[in-house]
Nucleic acid binder design. Structure first.
Lengths: 144, 144
DNA sequence: CTTAATGCAAAGGCTTTGCAGAGAC
DNA sequence: GTCTCTGCAAAGCCTTTGCATTAAG
């Protein structure tokens, strides 16, 4: 329970273990990058940031680790950009603005948003989550 | 305005022209595939379906044409599956169930759904659309 | 003839995979 | 020593692009 901006490797390791993830050095580094920025990062972003810091982590490990984190529920995949997956360390329910001109994502706090009138899910299905993506673009000042 | 299931090439051509799209043979074929199925089709799906029918259309043309259609507003891109873009001939506001185990999309009529409490969009931005994607998975009967 | 669209194949970007080597206990 | 993780490089998809050919008026 550390709610300041300083996150220690031990905090990270503990968190990984809560999600049944063996906290290896690389995984801790990757998690640290994610949780210290608290933004939407692509695998490439993570790869760059991790290698900027201390350890060397290969691309394969970055991809595998992000997949593992997402599968275990430590982070969330955001599918909004057709070209790449973003990983979001914020697993609390929330939504996104997606700027179609730049591909940039911005958070929308979920407590402000209410989605009503959704039909029952198909038989035998469980809801995993609800993504609300508000697609925005620069106003028509500069449209072509 | 033809609301029966039979869509003639002339209907299609007229519709393309409403969207300032020059109705070539290939484009009409592609549009026909989309509007006669009224489902979410990937570029690959369209490619297969178009070539099953009459004319031969290359993959490049399928991709370029789908992009053109989407850009002009004739169809809508649905970004829900990290692996491929789906194209939706239904441009009326509506939402989707996304089965994460199969990648299949199902429509949710928009008139049933109400999204409230969205914050104002960032300065200088216009809302292009709101996507609500309800991610579902088979209930825990058969989980692994 | 002139302009626009098509098709082929190559290239490009993101992601996954196979397998050998390194690390942890 | 055994089991797991990591890293490299190759391969796999989906999609885009360059350019010559073809179609349209």
């Amino acid at each position: 329970m550390n709610d300041s901006k300083t996150i220690t490797p031990e905090d990270i390791a503990a968190r990984l273990q809560e999600y049944s993830i063996n906290p290896t050095a690389q995984r801790v580094e990757i998690a640290r990058v994610l949780f210290s920025r608290r933004t939407h990062l692509s695998a490439e972003d993570v790869f760059v940031l991790v290698n900027e810091q201390s350890s060397r982590v290969s691309k394969a490990t970055v991809y595998n680790t992000l997949g593992l984190f997402a599968e275990r529920g430590l982070i969330r995949e955001v599918i909004a950009d057709p070209a790449r997956v973003f990983y979001d360390p914020n697993t609390a329910p929330h939504h996104h603005f997606y700027d179609t001109s730049t591909g940039r994502l911005t958070d929308i706090a979920a407590d402000k948003v209410h989605v009503s009138g959704l039909p029952a899910v198909p038989e035998g299905m469980d809801v995993e989550g609800i993504d609300v993506i508000v697609r925005v673009r620069p106003a028509s000042v500069d449209k072509d």
